[in-house]
Design a protein around this nucleic acid. Structure first.
Length: 493
RNA sequence: CGGGAUGUAGUUCAGUCCGGUAGAAUACCUGGUUUGGGACCAGGGGGUCGCAGGUUCGAAUCCUGUCAUCCCGACCA
């Protein structure tokens, strides 16, 4: 994979190649020497930390607490919930031994065959099973409910075809697991967390999402309902950005988690689980980037403003640096993060290009010309427009501008999606529009057979049954059978 | 796991058909000049050609095997 290419390959050539180069060149991540895994570099991780911090605050506001559960899960735990096994038993990493020893021929270390585990351990693909086996000990009465826990962790799924951020074998995420006394409360929780995710995506990531519920086929293994938020990437595919599952009593029954209610009757608890992952970073990159590189929404940019000096001599530099100092202070006072890049081993042109690839929202340039005129040059990353501004009141202007950029990026992505979302009533047009990378709203007869047929023939899947949309009945686009409502079809990552 | 492709310098790749001294660009190091859009000049370091066999006087190149990676599917946040 390219690490030192100067420019980015234009999107038209090959979208996934362009995407990979973007991720690597913007110093977000690179492929690890372990199959399907990635190294998240400091700049990429700084963005993830921002996402974490904001979401974690939201979870606390909604009454959740963080906890931590083990990485390794006894294999038998995964056998208890039949549907869950169907969905997850397959692509998992398995720990079979607990010791290495030196090879007799001196060629290094080998697995010690005498250190075989009685029961194999599974590296968590998700934590429902270990958490519910733990909750069993925590829950006796309705007074112990609800339990509202979240965990920040890594998980591992032995994916067949990894892509940086979008699908890696190991990924970072948060998983919330809650236990409730009533069905209504659990369903409300699942819906509430879906809305927390949607709000975060739109307000902070500037990422418009479609809220909806998954079809039975696309549902999480073991859930009664899977609520989703779906975004559109610039190549017209759908990307599931977050999920919130209403698990019913399935896991409680599988792990024997019962409680005594107010009427002194024994009942199984109602559950939810919900998560977002480092895939959000992929969604961000896929949605906003252009051929000059990453475009970060100001609310997630680790550095919101970068200042580049233009100078010939050290005297000029110190004159400029003096002036910059007051600008930096003014911006910091408004809570804006600023970097002054006075490194003398890179030329200004290199810095300009580099910060564009990294997606820094605002770039300020100061040279001797500006010092004489009391001005500076400002460029906004989203439109690449440059203007020369007076230093007077610059910090206030930038504060407003950052909001403008945040809104502009969101509106641009929203417009892009709306222009590429179509209602379709014939199967021929359905195929054409899917081929063109459109979100297609079409009638569906509600059967898994039709869903499978459409997937087979067009590679499109039902992304969700969207909320807040016209729900008038019609005829299935594929079979002509009666349909309750339009659903969202698209190809997806 | 099926279909296709590729493994050569840190990186991107040429050289392989037709066997004969290991190449380019870029990155890196040194010195100088530069600095308002990815600098230039001069010099320098760096590769058991994925791995293992075989054919040959001689293999990056031909043959056999093997491993790995990438792309298109299947799986999936």
């Amino acid at each position: 994979m390219a690490t030192e290419l100067k420019g980015l390959t234009k999107r038209s050539e090959n979208y996934s190649k362009w995407y990979n180069e973007l991720v690597v060149n913007a110093e977000l991540a690179e492929q690890a020497p372990v199959r399907g895994c990635m190294v998240i570099k400091p700049y990429g991780y700084a963005i993830w930390e921002k996402i974490q911090r904001i979401l974690d605050d939201k979870f606390k506001e909604t009454g959740h607490q963080n906890a931590y559960f083990p990485l390794l899960i006894p294999k038998s735990y995964l056998s208890r919930e039949a549907e869950h096994v169907e969905g997850f038993a397959k692509e998992c990493a398995v720990v079979t031994h607990y010791r290495l020893k030196n090879a007799e021929d001196g060629s290094g270390v080998v697995v010690d065959p005498s250190a075989k585990l009685e029961e194999e351990l599974i590296i968590r693909p998700t934590s429902e099973t270990i958490i519910w086996s733990t909750y069993k000990n925590w829950i006796k009465s309705y007074r112990d409910l609800p339990i509202l826990c979240n965990q920040w962790a890594n998980v591992m799924r032995w994916e067949m075809r990894p892509r940086l951020f979008l699908r890696t074998a190991e990924f970072l995420w948060q998983e919330g697991h809650t236990a409730h006394a009533t069905r209504e409360e659990a369903e409300a929780e699942a819906r509430r967390m879906q809305e927390v995710y949607a709000d975060f995506a739109e307000k902070y990531m500037a990422l418009p999402v479609i809220r909806g519920v998954k079809s039975e086929t696309e549902r999480f293994a073991g859930a009664l309902d899977t609520y989703t938020i779906e975004s559109m990437t610039q190549d017209g595919k759908a990307l599931q950005c977050g999920t919130s599952h209403f698990l019913g009593q399935n896991f409680a029954k599988a792990f024997g988690v019962q409680f005594v209610d107010r009427e002194n009757k024994l009942d199984y608890v109602w559950a939810t689980s919900w998560g977002v992952s480092t895939r959000l970073m992929g969604a961000l990159i896929m949605a906003h980037s252009d051929d000059n590189g990453l475009v970060l929404p100001p609310k997630l940019a680790p550095v919101q403003v970068v200042i580049v000096p233009i100078y010939k001599t050290t005297d000029e530099l110190s004159a400029i640096s003096d002036k910059v100092k007051s600008i930096v202070e003014g911006l910091k006072a408004r809570g804006i993060s600023v970097k002054y890049d006075d490194a003398d081993n890179k030329r200004p042109g290199f810095k300009f290009a580099d910060y564009e690839v990294k997606g820094i929202p605002v770039r300020l340039v100061l040279g001797m010309r500006d010092l004489q005129n009391g001005t500076l040059e400002l460029m906004r990353r989203d439109t690449l427009q440059k203007e020369t501004l007076s230093l007077e009141g610059i910090d206030a202007k930038i504060e407003t501008l950052l909001d403008d950029i945040q809104n502009n990026i969101f509106n641009k992505a929203l417009k892009y999606r709306e222009e590429r979302t179509v209602e379709v009533d014939s199967y021929e047009e359905f195929k054409t529009q899917i081929e063109n990378g459109r979100f297609v709203l079409a009638h569906w007869d509600g059967t898994a057979e039709t869903e499978a047929k459409i997937k087979e023939e067009t590679k499109a899947t039902i992304r969700c049954l969207p909320f807040g949309l016209d729900e008038t009945p019609g005829k299935c686009v594929c079979t002509g059978a009666p349909s309750a409502r339009r659903v969202l079809f698209a190809r997806s990552y």
